[in-house]
């Protein structure tokens, strides 16, 4: 049980789309997780051992686990910010009239979109140096920073596609009207095209964020002290008692569910709202 990557939950897995998630109600999932956490502890108290009950043990560790989870959220927000900025630039590159820029952006987008997130994370971990020296100043690059970069790569590629798709979905008449009013291409993009794209991009973008948040646990595999890593350490510190696994990982599941499920609902609402407008 000490070898962390043997835990099924840590293995890379296809990420659920929140679409499916959002069709569940809270009241389907909560009892399930609660049962997972409580049943082993019942079995345990029936055994009548001297040790503290699993739930009591979990309670001691909750503050630390919450700290770890907040770290996951920080990683997700930063990776989303970096990925969105880079992805927007890449998406604009994909519709550039300049052939080489367009092909290059297309290639980069496809490359990172069709790569497993975990592999990209490993690449960022091992290809980025542990410190940068710029003009004599040494800037250390901690693991969490590299994890942000690694996770922002697939986000970038997905945002690039979202941007390209939104721009392509606008009627060509919008471009022509702007062109015939003597707008430059840049003005056309920033004043006419992109403002109309924001609405169309919002639902898939929020969706992507939920997927990214769930993927932040991958950072545990490369040793970042996020919630999964801390859970593993807590379990090891408690002597690797098997009956602790379900309550601890159940708690982690609960944290992610409580955070991602409302986002999935919100995406659905946005989609419905904009479907009505269009």
């Amino acid at each position: 049980m000490n070898k962390k990557t043997d835990l099924p939950v840590m293995l890379p897995k296809p990420v659920q789309t929140p679409q499916a998630l959002s069709s569940l109600s809270y009241w389907h999932i909560l009892p399930l997780i609660a049962a997972m956490m409580i049943i082993p502890s019942l079995a345990f108290s029936a055994a009548g051992d001297e040790l503290k009950s699993p739930l009591a043990v979990l309670k001691n560790w909750i503050p630390l686990l919450l700290e770890g989870f907040v770290f996951n959220l920080i990683i997700s927000v930063c990776a989303m910010a970096v990925g969105t900025a880079a992805g927007t630039a890449l998406g604009l590159g994909q519709i550039s009239p300049n052939n080489s820029l367009r092909r290059g952006s297309w290639f980069v987008t496809q490359f990172f979109r069709n790569a497993p997130w975990l592999v990209l994370l490993f690449f960022a971990m091992f290809l980025l140096p542990f410190e940068l020296s710029i003009a004599g100043i040494i800037i250390p690059l901690p693991d969490w920073f590299k994890a942000i970069i690694g996770l922002s790569l697939p986000v970038m590629a997905n945002v690039s596609e979202i941007v390209r798709g939104a721009i392509r979905s606008l009627p060509s008449g919008q471009w022509e009207a702007a062109e015939s009013l003597a707008y430059t291409r840049r003005q056309t993009l920033w004043l006419v095209i992109l403002p109309q794209c924001v609405k169309r991009m919002l639902p898939p973008w929020v969706n992507l964020y939920a997927i990214l948040t769930m993927a932040t646990v991958l950072a545990s595999i490369v040793g970042v002290s996020e919630v999964m890593t801390l859970t593993g350490r807590a379990l090891a510190a408690e002597g690797g008692r098997p009956e602790l696994l379900a309550p601890f990982y159940g708690f982690v599941l609960l944290l992610f569910f409580a955070y991602c499920y409302p986002i999935a609902r919100y995406t659905l609402r946005l989609e419905k709202k904009f479907a009505v407008i269009n």
Binding site: P171, G173, Q174, E176, A177, A178, S180, V192, P195, Q196
Partner: peptide
């Protein structure tokens, strides 16, 4: 040169 289109093409936002 001004131009007006069949589909108006106003900026909806």
């Amino acid at each position: 040169v001004g131009m007006v289109f069949q589909q108006y093409n106003l900026f909806p936002h």
